[in-house]
Computed example of a mutant assay.
Amino acid sequence: MCRHLAYLGIAPISLAELLTAPPGSLYEQSWAPRKQQHGTVNADGFGIGWYPGDPYEGAEPARYRRALPIWNDRNLPELTAAIASTAVLAAVRSATPGTSPDEAVTAPYRSGRWLFSHNGAIDAWERLPDDLGPAAGPLRTADLLAGAGRCDSALLWTLLERRLAAGLPPVDAVAALVRAVAAVRPAARLNLLLTDGDTVIATRHGDSLWYAQTPGRVLVASEPTPGLTSGGAADWREIPEGSLVLATRSGVRSAPLRPASDAGRGHPRTARRPGPAPILTVEGTNP
């Protein structure tokens, strides 16, 4: 498993203020996660993606990734103090057994304006494209060979990126991918974060996920960091299991990942292609 976080704000925030300084920060979650349901430490690498320009003007993100524990990077304090951004996605990694140990498979993954992270694990992930069949979408052998590396998360990103490249709306692409994978891997844990610097699309499927919405900013994270918000712990709300979330700087919405007709079943159907998911307000938050 892993821990990850996405931030959108009207005002830039320094990476240090967001990721390393607050008590219970993502930095601290690398060795002392509080809500993690699988695994105990996240010491197999870390990555930070941020938008150095104005995301409203189509700025593409920069990344800093390492294959070592985040606390062992002596350059990190200076780097995080010097960089600020209005949009950030970051993760600390606990590698799935059998995956590559190098930084190429460390989130966030990137394509154009998109940044992506996966918190979870997929059993027998090497056979996943074959088991998905047509639900694998517009996937070619060349796409797999050009992927980030040998890792379940990297494979998920390849599957999702091809859907996005084919023109599927991002919310539909994320929802369809999670449903399809869960249908053939019921035990898979599929907490995803996807951002273009303007919106965040997230799923809770198998581990914890929280959000905090305050004026001009939104945070979506594996676990709450009360020091990041003026209201502390009271600003954080837990997202229900089996949810898809759409967050912007002005609001947070969610909907069930499974179509209503599948409620109560062991796992989602993939016999029919899901249409756009209905978006429901989360805990009274208005977009």
Rank of each mutant, 00 (worst) to 15 (best):
G9L: 10
G9M: 10
P12W: 04
L15R: 08
E17G: 05
L19W: 02
L19M: 11
T20D: 00
T20S: 08
A21E: 15
A21Y: 13
P23W: 06
P23C: 11
G24Y: 10
S25K: 01
S25P: 00
L26M: 01
L26V: 01
E28M: 01
E28F: 00
E28V: 08
S30I: 08
P33L: 09
P33E: 08
R34T: 15
K35A: 15
Q36R: 14
Q36D: 09
H38A: 14
G39F: 11
G39N: 07
T40C: 07
T40W: 11
T40A: 11
V41H: 02
V41Q: 12
V41N: 08
N42C: 11
A43L: 13
G45Y: 03
F46W: 09
I48T: 01
I48A: 01
G49T: 02
Y51G: 03
Y51A: 04
P52C: 09
P52F: 00
D54T: 13
P55L: 14
P55E: 05
P55R: 13
Y56E: 14
Y56C: 10
Y56F: 11
G58K: 03
G58N: 06
E60V: 14
P61Q: 13
P61N: 08
P61M: 12
A62S: 03
R63S: 07
R65E: 06
R66F: 14
L68P: 10
P69G: 03
P69Y: 09
W71S: 10
W71C: 07
N72C: 12
R74N: 11
R74S: 15
N75G: 15
L79C: 00
L79T: 04
T80H: 00
A81H: 01
A82L: 06
I83M: 02
I83Q: 03
I83R: 00
A84K: 00
S85I: 02
T86Y: 05
A87V: 10
A87G: 07
V88E: 09
L89D: 02
L89G: 04
A90E: 01
A91T: 04
R93P: 08
R93N: 09
R93D: 04
S94E: 13
S94Q: 10
S94K: 07
S94A: 15
A95T: 06
A95S: 15
A95W: 07
P97G: 15
P97W: 04
P97F: 06
G98W: 00
S100W: 10
S100D: 06
D102Y: 06
D102F: 00
E103M: 06
A104Y: 00
A104C: 01
A104W: 01
V105N: 01
V105I: 09
V105P: 02
A107R: 02
P108E: 02
Y109P: 13
Y109L: 13
Y109T: 13
R110Q: 14
G112R: 07
G112S: 11
W114T: 13
W114G: 08
W114H: 14
L115R: 08
F116Q: 01
F116K: 03
S117W: 02
H118D: 03
G120A: 02
A121M: 12
A121C: 11
A124R: 07
W125F: 15
W125C: 12
R127C: 15
R127D: 15
P129H: 14
P129Y: 14
P129V: 15
P129E: 13
P129A: 09
D130C: 09
D130R: 10
D130T: 14
D131V: 12
D131L: 13
L132Y: 11
L132I: 14
L132S: 12
G133I: 12
G133M: 05
G133L: 05
P134C: 00
A136S: 14
